[in-house]
């Protein structure tokens, strides 16, 4: 995932294009396997229907699913969006309500580091889960630099 800056006022945090293409290529193959299984489901010796459903769904999401965070400084909005040909969620936050960004680790649990934005009403909204601490710091610093908001690094 990278922060792609389109203009000084607009940026998108999205998947790196090469990994997106590679994942889609793999996903198309799995999706094709699933679709062929559905097509020949009537022939004897096929997989059970729930297995075909799972494989096809896996291929579908690997091909089409994506998550991105849009930063729009003109409209003062941060939009978190996930879709997979059909919308999954689309949450918009007012940038004026955001105090800043935090990089947190979740205790001693084996969970990735999390970049959250702290809102004025006390809500903390997770923007990104990143496994590697240096990369997490780099991305969080990019968020803070682009929006001009403070960043605190609270990592164990």
């Amino acid at each position: 995932m990278i922060l792609k800056v389109h203009s000084p006022k607009r940026a998108t945090y999205r998947q790196y294009l090469l990994s997106r293409v590679l994942l889609s290529g793999l996903g198309v193959i799995i999706l094709l396997v699933g679709v062929l299984n559905i097509y020949f489901a009537a022939s004897p010796g096929g997989l059970p229907f729930w297995a075909i459903g799972l494989i096809t769904t896996l291929g579908w999401h690997a091909t089409f699913a994506s998550y991105r965070v849009r930063f729009d400084l003109d409209a003062r909005k941060i939009v978190l969006k996930a879709f997979s040909l059909y919308p999954i969620f689309n949450r918009a936050y007012d940038l004026n309500e955001v105090l800043g960004f935090r990089l947190i680790s979740r205790g001693a649990k084996n969970l990735p580091y999390q970049i959250v934005m702290v809102c004025k009403n006390g809500e903390q909204v997770a923007l990104s889960n990143i496994r590697y601490p240096t990369h997490a710091k780099y991305i969080a610093q990019q968020f803070a630099d682009f929006t001009g908001l403070p960043l605190t690094v609270d990592m164990v």
């Binding site: 075909i52 096809t56 769904t57 997979s84």
Partner: peptide, 12 residues
């Protein structure tokens, strides 16, 4: 996200 699973299962 899990919505396609029942759809494809029913289709199969």
């Amino acid at each position: 996200l899990a919505l396609p699973i029942p759809v494809f299962c029913v289709l199969t």
